[in-house]
Design a protein around this nucleic acid. Structure first.
Lengths: 233, 233
DNA sequence: ACCACAGTATGGTCAGACCATACCGAACCA
DNA sequence: TGGTTCGGTATGGTCTGACCATACTGTGGT
Protein backbone atom coordinates (compact mmCIF):
# COMPACT_ATOMS: atom_id res chain seq x y z
CA UNK A 1 0.00 0.00 0.00
CA UNK A 2 3.01 2.29 0.50
CA UNK A 3 0.86 4.55 2.63
CA UNK A 4 -1.95 4.89 0.15
CA UNK A 5 -2.43 8.50 1.17
CA UNK A 6 -2.67 7.61 4.84
CA UNK A 7 -0.88 9.63 7.41
CA UNK A 8 -0.46 9.05 11.11
CA UNK A 9 -3.04 11.05 12.98
CA UNK A 10 -2.10 13.45 15.75
CA UNK A 11 1.63 13.36 15.78
CA UNK A 12 2.14 16.61 17.62
CA UNK A 13 1.83 16.78 21.34
CA UNK A 14 -0.49 19.34 22.88
CA UNK A 15 2.23 21.51 24.34
CA UNK A 16 3.84 21.68 20.91
CA UNK A 17 0.64 23.10 19.48
CA UNK A 18 0.59 25.60 22.30
CA UNK A 19 4.18 26.52 21.52
CA UNK A 20 3.38 27.01 17.84
CA UNK A 21 0.40 29.20 18.61
CA UNK A 22 2.36 31.33 21.05
CA UNK A 23 5.11 31.74 18.48
CA UNK A 24 2.56 32.70 15.86
CA UNK A 25 1.09 35.30 18.17
CA UNK A 26 4.52 36.72 18.83
CA UNK A 27 5.19 37.04 15.11
CA UNK A 28 1.74 38.31 14.09
CA UNK A 29 1.23 40.76 16.93
CA UNK A 30 4.82 41.92 16.75
CA UNK A 31 5.43 41.22 20.42
CA UNK A 32 8.86 42.06 21.73
CA UNK A 33 10.80 41.91 24.98
CA UNK A 34 8.81 43.42 27.82
CA UNK A 35 5.38 42.44 26.51
CA UNK A 36 3.23 40.14 28.59
CA UNK A 37 1.64 36.85 27.64
CA UNK A 38 -1.84 35.92 28.92
CA UNK A 39 -1.99 34.12 32.24
CA UNK A 40 -1.58 30.37 32.21
CA UNK A 41 -5.18 29.64 33.17
CA UNK A 42 -6.52 32.11 30.64
CA UNK A 43 -4.31 30.73 27.88
CA UNK A 44 -5.37 27.20 28.73
CA UNK A 45 -9.04 28.15 28.45
CA UNK A 46 -8.58 30.11 25.22
CA UNK A 47 -6.70 27.25 23.58
CA UNK A 48 -8.96 24.56 24.99
CA UNK A 49 -6.16 22.65 26.68
CA UNK A 50 -5.20 21.89 30.22
CA UNK A 51 -3.01 24.15 32.25
CA UNK A 52 -0.34 21.45 32.40
CA UNK A 53 0.17 21.64 28.65
CA UNK A 54 0.44 25.40 28.78
CA UNK A 55 2.95 25.11 31.58
CA UNK A 56 5.09 22.66 29.65
CA UNK A 57 5.13 25.07 26.72
CA UNK A 58 6.13 27.83 29.13
CA UNK A 59 9.02 25.77 30.44
CA UNK A 60 10.30 25.35 26.90
CA UNK A 61 10.04 29.05 26.16
CA UNK A 62 11.73 29.82 29.43
CA UNK A 63 14.56 27.38 28.77
CA UNK A 64 15.14 29.04 25.41
CA UNK A 65 15.41 32.44 27.07
CA UNK A 66 12.26 33.83 25.50
CA UNK A 67 9.99 34.33 28.50
CA UNK A 68 10.46 34.90 32.18
CA UNK A 69 7.78 34.02 34.71
CA UNK A 70 7.01 36.11 37.78
CA UNK A 71 4.59 35.14 40.50
CA UNK A 72 2.23 37.48 42.26
CA UNK A 73 0.00 40.14 40.85
CA UNK A 74 0.38 43.40 39.03
CA UNK A 75 1.95 44.68 35.85
CA UNK A 76 5.18 42.79 36.38
CA UNK A 77 3.62 39.43 37.17
CA UNK A 78 2.97 36.63 34.75
CA UNK A 79 4.92 35.49 31.73
CA UNK A 80 6.92 38.36 30.26
CA UNK A 81 8.78 38.14 26.99
CA UNK A 82 12.52 38.50 27.38
CA UNK A 83 15.55 38.13 25.18
CA UNK A 84 18.21 36.12 26.96
CA UNK A 85 19.76 33.87 24.34
CA UNK A 86 23.00 33.65 26.33
CA UNK A 87 21.51 31.85 29.32
CA UNK A 88 19.91 29.31 27.03
CA UNK A 89 23.11 28.90 25.06
CA UNK A 90 25.10 28.42 28.24
CA UNK A 91 22.80 25.68 29.48
CA UNK A 92 22.83 24.03 26.08
CA UNK A 93 26.60 23.95 25.79
CA UNK A 94 27.16 22.91 29.39
CA UNK A 95 24.77 19.98 29.11
CA UNK A 96 26.17 18.78 25.81
CA UNK A 97 29.72 19.14 27.06
CA UNK A 98 28.86 17.19 30.20
CA UNK A 99 27.38 14.40 28.13
CA UNK A 100 30.53 14.23 26.04
CA UNK A 101 28.36 14.99 23.04
CA UNK A 102 30.85 17.71 22.24
CA UNK A 103 34.59 17.60 22.66
CA UNK A 104 36.51 20.32 24.41
CA UNK A 105 38.58 20.72 21.29
CA UNK A 106 35.53 21.68 19.27
CA UNK A 107 34.50 24.29 21.81
CA UNK A 108 37.95 25.82 21.94
CA UNK A 109 38.24 25.95 18.16
CA UNK A 110 34.92 27.73 18.07
CA UNK A 111 36.14 30.15 20.66
CA UNK A 112 39.27 30.69 18.61
CA UNK A 113 37.22 31.53 15.55
CA UNK A 114 34.94 33.93 17.39
CA UNK A 115 37.72 35.68 19.19
CA UNK A 116 39.74 36.27 16.08
CA UNK A 117 36.71 37.71 14.38
CA UNK A 118 35.74 39.85 17.35
CA UNK A 119 39.26 41.15 17.90
CA UNK A 120 39.54 42.14 14.26
CA UNK A 121 36.27 44.02 14.35
CA UNK A 122 37.04 45.61 17.68
CA UNK A 123 40.35 46.79 16.28
CA UNK A 124 38.70 48.24 13.17
CA UNK A 125 36.30 50.12 15.42
CA UNK A 126 38.96 50.86 18.07
CA UNK A 127 36.23 50.00 20.58
CA UNK A 128 36.02 48.58 24.08
CA UNK A 129 39.52 49.47 25.25
CA UNK A 130 38.35 50.83 28.58
CA UNK A 131 36.60 47.61 29.54
CA UNK A 132 39.66 45.68 28.43
CA UNK A 133 42.08 47.66 30.58
CA UNK A 134 39.73 47.26 33.55
CA UNK A 135 39.66 43.49 33.13
CA UNK A 136 43.43 43.48 32.75
CA UNK A 137 43.99 45.17 36.10
CA UNK A 138 41.43 42.83 37.61
CA UNK A 139 43.56 39.87 36.54
CA UNK A 140 46.64 41.50 38.07
CA UNK A 141 44.88 41.61 41.42
CA UNK A 142 43.62 38.04 41.26
CA UNK A 143 44.89 35.72 44.02
CA UNK A 144 43.35 32.43 42.91
CA UNK A 145 42.87 30.65 39.61
CA UNK A 146 39.12 31.15 39.93
CA UNK A 147 39.54 34.87 40.38
CA UNK A 148 41.93 35.05 37.47
CA UNK A 149 39.56 33.17 35.20
CA UNK A 150 36.76 35.47 36.29
CA UNK A 151 38.56 38.54 35.00
CA UNK A 152 39.99 36.67 32.05
CA UNK A 153 36.45 35.85 31.02
CA UNK A 154 35.52 39.49 31.39
CA UNK A 155 38.45 40.45 29.17
CA UNK A 156 37.58 38.09 26.38
CA UNK A 157 33.87 38.83 26.57
CA UNK A 158 34.64 42.53 26.39
CA UNK A 159 36.31 41.88 23.05
CA UNK A 160 33.17 40.16 21.82
CA UNK A 161 30.97 42.94 23.17
CA UNK A 162 33.12 45.49 21.37
CA UNK A 163 32.37 43.80 18.07
CA UNK A 164 28.82 45.09 18.37
CA UNK A 165 27.25 41.77 17.40
CA UNK A 166 25.05 40.55 20.23
CA UNK A 167 24.70 37.05 18.84
CA UNK A 168 28.44 36.55 18.65
CA UNK A 169 28.86 38.12 22.08
CA UNK A 170 26.21 35.76 23.45
CA UNK A 171 27.92 32.72 21.93
CA UNK A 172 31.24 33.91 23.34
CA UNK A 173 29.86 34.37 26.82
CA UNK A 174 28.16 30.98 26.71
CA UNK A 175 31.31 29.26 25.54
CA UNK A 176 33.29 30.80 28.37
CA UNK A 177 30.67 30.00 31.00
CA UNK A 178 30.27 26.41 29.95
CA UNK A 179 34.06 25.99 29.84
CA UNK A 180 34.75 27.73 33.14
CA UNK A 181 35.69 24.48 34.84
CA UNK A 182 38.26 23.57 32.19
CA UNK A 183 39.62 27.11 32.09
CA UNK A 184 40.40 27.01 35.80
CA UNK A 185 42.16 23.69 35.35
CA UNK A 186 44.19 25.10 32.48
CA UNK A 187 45.33 28.10 34.53
CA UNK A 188 46.27 25.90 37.48
CA UNK A 189 48.23 23.58 35.23
CA UNK A 190 50.05 26.53 33.72
CA UNK A 191 51.00 27.97 37.10
CA UNK A 192 52.51 31.19 35.85
CA UNK A 193 50.09 33.68 34.34
CA UNK A 194 52.75 36.12 33.15
CA UNK A 195 52.70 34.72 29.64
CA UNK A 196 48.93 35.05 29.53
CA UNK A 197 49.21 38.63 30.67
CA UNK A 198 51.64 39.39 27.88
CA UNK A 199 49.19 37.96 25.40
CA UNK A 200 46.39 40.10 26.75
CA UNK A 201 48.50 43.21 26.51
CA UNK A 202 49.41 42.43 22.92
CA UNK A 203 45.74 42.00 22.03
CA UNK A 204 44.84 45.25 23.74
CA UNK A 205 47.65 47.18 22.02
CA UNK A 206 46.60 45.85 18.61
CA UNK A 207 43.00 46.92 19.19
CA UNK A 208 44.10 50.34 20.41
CA UNK A 209 46.24 50.69 17.31
CA UNK A 210 43.34 49.67 15.09
CA UNK A 211 45.39 46.88 13.56
CA UNK A 212 42.89 44.12 12.78
CA UNK A 213 45.41 41.61 11.47
CA UNK A 214 47.73 42.05 14.43
CA UNK A 215 44.77 41.62 16.79
CA UNK A 216 43.77 38.35 15.13
CA UNK A 217 47.35 37.06 15.29
CA UNK A 218 47.66 38.08 18.93
CA UNK A 219 44.48 36.18 19.80
CA UNK A 220 45.74 33.12 18.01
CA UNK A 221 49.05 33.07 19.82
CA UNK A 222 47.40 33.77 23.14
CA UNK A 223 45.14 30.74 22.82
CA UNK A 224 48.07 28.59 21.74
CA UNK A 225 49.81 29.50 25.00
CA UNK A 226 46.72 28.93 27.12
CA UNK A 227 45.96 25.48 25.71
CA UNK A 228 49.30 24.17 24.45
CA UNK A 229 48.14 20.55 24.35
CA UNK A 230 45.47 21.35 21.79
CA UNK A 231 47.83 23.06 19.39
CA UNK A 232 50.57 20.49 18.96
CA UNK A 233 50.62 19.51 15.34
CA UNK B 1 21.81 44.19 60.70
CA UNK B 2 22.48 44.00 56.97
CA UNK B 3 20.34 40.93 56.79
CA UNK B 4 21.44 39.44 60.06
CA UNK B 5 22.13 36.19 58.29
CA UNK B 6 18.61 36.05 56.88
CA UNK B 7 18.09 34.90 53.36
CA UNK B 8 14.98 34.23 51.35
CA UNK B 9 14.05 30.61 51.71
CA UNK B 10 13.39 28.31 48.78
CA UNK B 11 14.14 30.36 45.72
CA UNK B 12 14.57 27.48 43.35
CA UNK B 13 11.57 25.84 41.82
CA UNK B 14 11.08 22.13 42.16
CA UNK B 15 11.65 21.32 38.52
CA UNK B 16 14.94 23.20 38.68
CA UNK B 17 16.08 20.92 41.47
CA UNK B 18 15.06 17.95 39.38
CA UNK B 19 16.99 19.39 36.47
CA UNK B 20 20.09 19.85 38.60
CA UNK B 21 19.89 16.32 39.94
CA UNK B 22 19.48 14.82 36.50
CA UNK B 23 22.43 16.84 35.26
CA UNK B 24 24.48 15.68 38.21
CA UNK B 25 23.59 12.09 37.49
CA UNK B 26 24.60 12.52 33.87
CA UNK B 27 27.98 13.90 34.91
CA UNK B 28 28.65 11.47 37.76
CA UNK B 29 27.47 8.32 36.03
CA UNK B 30 29.09 9.34 32.78
CA UNK B 31 25.87 8.91 30.84
CA UNK B 32 26.05 9.58 27.13
CA UNK B 33 23.77 9.61 24.12
CA UNK B 34 21.74 6.41 23.94
CA UNK B 35 21.48 5.83 27.68
CA UNK B 36 18.07 5.82 29.28
CA UNK B 37 16.78 7.90 32.16
CA UNK B 38 14.42 6.36 34.73
CA UNK B 39 10.73 6.54 33.95
CA UNK B 40 8.89 9.69 34.94
CA UNK B 41 6.87 8.04 37.70
CA UNK B 42 9.91 6.30 39.10
CA UNK B 43 12.00 9.46 39.02
CA UNK B 44 9.22 11.38 40.74
CA UNK B 45 9.06 8.82 43.54
CA UNK B 46 12.84 8.64 43.96
CA UNK B 47 13.16 12.42 44.16
CA UNK B 48 10.08 12.87 46.30
CA UNK B 49 8.36 15.22 43.90
CA UNK B 50 5.28 15.07 41.73
CA UNK B 51 5.31 13.76 38.23
CA UNK B 52 4.42 17.22 36.93
CA UNK B 53 7.70 18.63 38.18
CA UNK B 54 9.61 15.79 36.59
CA UNK B 55 7.77 16.37 33.34
CA UNK B 56 8.59 20.07 33.32
CA UNK B 57 12.24 19.21 33.80
CA UNK B 58 11.95 16.75 30.93
CA UNK B 59 10.49 19.42 28.67
CA UNK B 60 13.48 21.64 29.39
CA UNK B 61 15.95 18.86 28.67
CA UNK B 62 14.09 18.02 25.52
CA UNK B 63 14.03 21.63 24.35
CA UNK B 64 17.79 21.77 24.85
CA UNK B 65 18.24 18.69 22.70
CA UNK B 66 19.52 16.51 25.50
CA UNK B 67 16.76 13.92 25.82
CA UNK B 68 14.13 12.46 23.55
CA UNK B 69 10.95 10.89 24.89
CA UNK B 70 9.35 7.80 23.37
CA UNK B 71 6.05 6.36 24.46
CA UNK B 72 5.27 2.70 24.75
CA UNK B 73 7.28 -0.03 26.27
CA UNK B 74 10.57 -1.74 25.71
CA UNK B 75 14.22 -0.81 25.44
CA UNK B 76 13.57 2.16 23.18
CA UNK B 77 10.78 3.67 25.26
CA UNK B 78 11.14 6.32 27.89
CA UNK B 79 13.50 9.26 28.08
CA UNK B 80 16.66 8.56 26.12
CA UNK B 81 19.69 10.81 26.18
CA UNK B 82 20.45 12.35 22.80
CA UNK B 83 22.80 14.97 21.45
CA UNK B 84 20.90 17.30 19.17
CA UNK B 85 22.25 20.77 19.84
CA UNK B 86 21.26 21.89 16.37
CA UNK B 87 17.51 21.54 16.86
CA UNK B 88 17.72 23.48 20.10
CA UNK B 89 19.87 26.14 18.48
CA UNK B 90 17.47 26.43 15.57
CA UNK B 91 14.49 26.98 17.85
CA UNK B 92 16.43 29.44 19.91
CA UNK B 93 17.54 31.55 16.97
CA UNK B 94 14.18 31.41 15.23
CA UNK B 95 12.33 32.59 18.32
CA UNK B 96 14.74 35.38 19.09
CA UNK B 97 14.74 36.50 15.47
CA UNK B 98 10.96 36.50 15.43
CA UNK B 99 10.88 38.62 18.55
CA UNK B 100 13.29 41.08 16.99
CA UNK B 101 15.61 40.37 19.88
CA UNK B 102 18.26 39.73 17.25
CA UNK B 103 18.73 41.60 14.01
CA UNK B 104 19.10 39.80 10.70
CA UNK B 105 22.36 41.65 10.23
CA UNK B 106 23.83 40.03 13.32
CA UNK B 107 22.84 36.57 12.15
CA UNK B 108 24.32 37.09 8.70
CA UNK B 109 27.55 38.47 10.10
CA UNK B 110 27.80 35.40 12.27
CA UNK B 111 27.21 33.22 9.27
CA UNK B 112 29.87 35.12 7.40
CA UNK B 113 32.36 34.47 10.18
CA UNK B 114 31.56 30.77 10.37
CA UNK B 115 31.61 30.21 6.68
CA UNK B 116 34.95 31.87 6.18
CA UNK B 117 36.40 29.77 8.95
CA UNK B 118 34.83 26.56 7.69
CA UNK B 119 35.84 27.16 4.08
CA UNK B 120 39.44 27.82 5.13
CA UNK B 121 39.59 24.63 7.13
CA UNK B 122 37.82 22.60 4.47
CA UNK B 123 40.34 23.87 1.93
CA UNK B 124 43.25 22.98 4.18
CA UNK B 125 41.85 19.49 4.51
CA UNK B 126 40.65 19.34 0.88
CA UNK B 127 37.51 17.77 2.35
CA UNK B 128 33.84 17.55 1.47
CA UNK B 129 34.11 18.21 -2.24
CA UNK B 130 31.78 15.38 -3.24
CA UNK B 131 28.93 16.67 -1.08
CA UNK B 132 29.55 20.14 -2.45
CA UNK B 133 29.33 19.09 -6.10
CA UNK B 134 26.15 17.16 -5.35
CA UNK B 135 24.53 20.22 -3.80
CA UNK B 136 25.69 22.29 -6.73
CA UNK B 137 23.93 20.10 -9.27
CA UNK B 138 20.88 20.10 -7.01
CA UNK B 139 20.74 23.88 -7.27
CA UNK B 140 21.01 23.68 -11.06
CA UNK B 141 17.89 21.50 -11.13
CA UNK B 142 15.91 23.71 -8.78
CA UNK B 143 12.72 25.20 -10.23
CA UNK B 144 11.58 27.37 -7.34
CA UNK B 145 13.28 29.68 -4.89
CA UNK B 146 12.43 27.27 -2.08
CA UNK B 147 14.08 24.40 -3.90
CA UNK B 148 17.11 26.50 -4.66
CA UNK B 149 17.48 27.57 -1.05
CA UNK B 150 17.12 23.94 -0.01
CA UNK B 151 20.19 22.90 -1.97
CA UNK B 152 21.97 26.13 -1.22
CA UNK B 153 21.61 25.32 2.45
CA UNK B 154 22.97 21.85 1.80
CA UNK B 155 25.96 23.37 0.02
CA UNK B 156 26.86 25.75 2.80
CA UNK B 157 26.23 23.21 5.53
CA UNK B 158 28.48 20.76 3.69
CA UNK B 159 31.29 23.26 4.01
CA UNK B 160 30.70 23.46 7.74
CA UNK B 161 30.51 19.67 8.00
CA UNK B 162 33.79 19.38 6.14
CA UNK B 163 35.48 21.46 8.80
CA UNK B 164 35.07 18.52 11.15
CA UNK B 165 33.83 20.66 14.04
CA UNK B 166 30.36 19.53 15.03
CA UNK B 167 29.64 22.57 17.15
CA UNK B 168 30.40 24.94 14.32
CA UNK B 169 28.45 22.75 11.91
CA UNK B 170 25.50 22.78 14.30
CA UNK B 171 25.60 26.55 14.59
CA UNK B 172 25.80 26.84 10.82
CA UNK B 173 22.83 24.57 10.26
CA UNK B 174 20.79 26.41 12.88
CA UNK B 175 21.61 29.77 11.39
CA UNK B 176 20.50 28.58 7.98
CA UNK B 177 17.31 26.98 9.24
CA UNK B 178 16.25 29.94 11.31
CA UNK B 179 16.99 32.25 8.37
CA UNK B 180 15.32 30.09 5.72
CA UNK B 181 12.44 32.53 5.30
CA UNK B 182 14.73 35.47 4.68
CA UNK B 183 16.95 33.44 2.37
CA UNK B 184 14.01 32.61 0.12
CA UNK B 185 13.05 36.26 0.02
CA UNK B 186 16.60 37.21 -0.87
CA UNK B 187 16.72 34.73 -3.77
CA UNK B 188 13.36 35.91 -5.09
CA UNK B 189 14.45 39.53 -4.88
CA UNK B 190 17.63 38.66 -6.73
CA UNK B 191 15.81 36.86 -9.54
CA UNK B 192 18.86 35.57 -11.34
CA UNK B 193 20.82 32.87 -9.57
CA UNK B 194 23.66 32.73 -12.08
CA UNK B 195 25.82 35.03 -10.02
CA UNK B 196 25.23 32.88 -6.94
CA UNK B 197 26.22 29.80 -8.92
CA UNK B 198 29.44 31.45 -9.98
CA UNK B 199 30.21 32.18 -6.34
CA UNK B 200 29.57 28.58 -5.37
CA UNK B 201 31.86 27.33 -8.10
CA UNK B 202 34.63 29.65 -6.97
CA UNK B 203 34.31 28.40 -3.40
CA UNK B 204 34.39 24.80 -4.55
CA UNK B 205 37.43 25.35 -6.78
CA UNK B 206 39.32 27.04 -3.95
CA UNK B 207 38.58 24.15 -1.58
CA UNK B 208 39.59 21.60 -4.23
CA UNK B 209 42.82 23.52 -4.75
CA UNK B 210 43.46 23.59 -1.03
CA UNK B 211 43.77 27.38 -1.07
CA UNK B 212 42.41 28.50 2.29
CA UNK B 213 42.76 32.23 1.67
CA UNK B 214 41.06 32.05 -1.70
CA UNK B 215 38.23 30.03 -0.15
CA UNK B 216 37.69 32.65 2.54
CA UNK B 217 37.69 35.45 -0.02
CA UNK B 218 35.27 33.57 -2.26
CA UNK B 219 32.87 33.10 0.64
CA UNK B 220 33.05 36.77 1.46
CA UNK B 221 32.28 37.87 -2.07
CA UNK B 222 29.53 35.31 -2.42
CA UNK B 223 27.72 36.65 0.65
CA UNK B 224 28.15 40.20 -0.55
CA UNK B 225 26.32 39.25 -3.74
CA UNK B 226 23.57 37.39 -1.93
CA UNK B 227 22.79 40.16 0.54
CA UNK B 228 23.91 43.36 -1.23
CA UNK B 229 21.88 45.63 1.02
CA UNK B 230 23.77 44.51 4.10
CA UNK B 231 27.19 45.19 2.64
CA UNK B 232 26.85 48.79 1.46
CA UNK B 233 29.29 50.80 3.48
C1' DA C 1 7.11 -22.79 14.78
C1' DC C 2 3.80 -19.47 14.44
C1' DC C 3 0.18 -16.43 15.73
C1' DA C 4 -3.42 -14.15 18.49
C1' DC C 5 -4.39 -11.87 22.59
C1' DA C 6 -4.27 -10.25 27.30
C1' DG C 7 -1.08 -7.88 30.38
C1' DT C 8 1.68 -4.00 31.44
C1' DA C 9 4.96 -0.14 31.45
C1' DT C 10 5.57 3.95 29.18
C1' DG C 11 4.64 8.92 28.08
C1' DG C 12 0.54 12.30 27.16
C1' DT C 13 -3.31 14.71 28.92
C1' DC C 14 -6.65 16.32 31.88
C1' DA C 15 -9.32 18.13 36.06
C1' DG C 16 -9.20 19.94 40.35
C1' DA C 17 -7.28 21.26 44.38
C1' DC C 18 -4.12 23.84 47.52
C1' DC C 19 -0.17 26.97 48.51
C1' DA C 20 2.88 31.27 48.44
C1' DT C 21 3.36 35.50 46.52
C1' DA C 22 2.41 40.21 45.65
C1' DC C 23 -0.49 43.65 44.19
C1' DC C 24 -5.05 46.16 44.76
C1' DG C 25 -8.36 48.60 47.19
C1' DA C 26 -11.44 49.56 50.71
C1' DA C 27 -12.04 50.33 55.40
C1' DC C 28 -10.14 52.29 59.18
C1' DC C 29 -7.71 55.37 62.01
C1' DA C 30 -4.92 59.85 63.00
C1' DT D 1 -6.59 64.91 54.38
C1' DG D 2 -3.34 61.54 54.92
C1' DG D 3 -1.47 57.20 56.07
C1' DT D 4 -1.95 52.37 57.60
C1' DT D 5 -3.88 48.00 57.99
C1' DC D 6 -5.98 44.13 56.31
C1' DG D 7 -8.87 41.30 53.37
C1' DG D 8 -9.61 40.21 48.41
C1' DT D 9 -7.70 38.40 44.34
C1' DA D 10 -4.83 37.17 40.31
C1' DT D 11 -0.67 35.06 39.52
C1' DG D 12 2.61 31.06 39.09
C1' DG D 13 4.17 26.60 41.70
C1' DT D 14 3.02 22.11 43.18
C1' DC D 15 0.61 17.99 44.03
C1' DT D 16 -2.78 14.12 43.43
C1' DG D 17 -5.16 10.94 40.95
C1' DA D 18 -7.19 9.59 37.14
C1' DC D 19 -7.63 8.12 32.22
C1' DC D 20 -5.89 7.42 27.39
C1' DA D 21 -2.85 5.78 23.46
C1' DT D 22 1.06 3.39 22.45
C1' DA D 23 4.07 -0.41 21.99
C1' DC D 24 6.45 -4.06 23.83
C1' DT D 25 6.13 -8.90 26.55
C1' DG D 26 4.80 -13.04 27.63
C1' DT D 27 1.46 -16.63 27.49
C1' DG D 28 -1.35 -19.87 25.51
C1' DG D 29 -3.35 -22.05 21.64
C1' DT D 30 -2.90 -23.81 17.01
Amino acid sequence: MDGGGWRPVKRTRTFEDVLAQIERRIAEDGLTAGDRLPAERQLAEQLGVSRSSVREAMRVLESLGVVSSQVGRGPDAGAVLTSRPETALTDLLRLHLGMAGLKLREVIDTRHMIEQWAASHAASARAGTSALTAALSGMDGARTAEEFVEHDTAFHCAIADASGNRLIAAIMRSLRDSMRRYAVEAVERLGDTAILRAGHVRILRAIEAGDADAAARAVSEHLAHAYPSLFDH
